[in-house]
Write a protein that binds this DNA or RNA. Structure first.
Lengths: 199, 199
DNA sequence: GTTGGCATTGAGTGATTACTAACAAGAGCG
DNA sequence: CGCTCTTGTTAGTAATCACTCAATGCCAAC
């Protein structure tokens, strides 16, 4: 009970002040929060939501990144880079085709990452985001060709299957089983295909 | 020069009043405008933009549809229904597989339609939109199986290729040729594949 | 221990937004 | 003409948003 601050905070009398952190640490933390928030609401999500997710004040979010748009672009770029890096690493394993497929499945298990990516696919409103999105897609194709030595058609099918997985995760198909016959059949078929690929 | 209204409007003295229209006609017109506007900005687009696109006042847009959300849902449902109807018709032609492929290509030539659909894939925020989106996807799969008698894998590849086309159109890949090597190769490969399918 | 810099906040500000309320204008009809 | 229903508007309102400003507390170096 040395200082009064601790006791007072425990009782809730003083306004909660965030624990002090280095600027870089805080930026990383905000980026992580922004990924979650932007994944949910896209660019329409507010800086206030990001701030609450990071447990700091809203003006500080804006200050550290300059503007909401800058924060979005940086968040998006980080996510896209992550995808490319993971695919790139998988492309150099023993069985690149299998490794890349598995790597992508693991990536999109992070629903936030995937939905954020999808938002970028449509957010062609912003030039920079569109560029990053196109690059990410192009790299997926290029890395598959380069890694596996597969022909264009096989690589195209790899990417296409990835886009199908994206959409199924985005619409939360698994959580809505039994609501639509066609969708159920599609999910089942995709599920079997992924299991087969992993065998 | 019969009435003063016409002359005055030409000179711009009287406030522009929209030509009178039946409620149903107006609703259709607003839905068409909303499709364009929501395609661009998703649910974040404003009712004011829709109103301007339809050349009427913003409150009237809200009044005719109850709320922005209701307008969005109805716009989305109409678009999804259109897709299902077109695919359904194609599934009953002589060569269903070829017809459905061609039909889908023609559908997504309407970039507004496609981008609106994509927005719904992510807008799982709204339950109803999510349901419609899942149904539309499920029907594409189901209709292909039913129409062509194809196996699950072939049908899955049909839908997957469709999703790839969606994304390529959404990120405006064609308009950005030459900016990214991987993307260029992917677009070229997809282009060849569609030409092959149409032969 | 004082000073200077960094992290962080509260309190605005002006712009925008969905939505409401009230009213205007014309068409059809007796 | 008068009455009513529908179409459409203008003028709000309360809420929300990104962003700004001035201040405050804290740490470290002198």
């Amino acid at each position: 009970m040395s200082s009064s601050t601790v006791a007072a905070e425990a009782v809730g009398k003083e306004p909660a002040r965030a624990v002090r952190m280095s600027g870089d640490e805080r930026r990383e933390q905000i980026l992580a929060a922004a990924r979650r928030v932007f994944a949910e609401g896209g660019f329409a999500a507010t800086t206030d939501e990001v701030a609450r997710a990071a447990a700091i004040s809203q003006p500080y979010v804006v200050r550290l990144f300059g503007s909401k748009r800058d924060l979005f672009v940086e968040t998006y770029r980080q996510a896209a880079d992550e995808v490319v890096a993971v695919l790139s690493a998988a492309a150099q394993e023993d069985d690149p085709a299998e490794a890349m497929g598995r790597a992508y499945l693991e990536l999109i298990e992070d629903r936030d990452l995937l939905r954020l990516l999808m938002h970028g696919f449509i957010a062609s409103a912003d030039d920079e985001v569109g560029r990053v999105a196109r690059h990410c897609l192009g790299e997926a194709y290029r890395l598959f060709v380069a890694g596996t030595g597969a022909g264009p058609d096989e690589a195209r099918q790899f990417v296409a299957f990835g886009m199908l997985l994206n959409v199924l995760v985005a619409v939360d198909a698994e959580a809505h089983r039994g609501e639509d016959g066609g969708m159920d059949a599609l999910v089942e078929c995709v599920f079997l295909a992924t299991r087969r690929a992993q065998a």
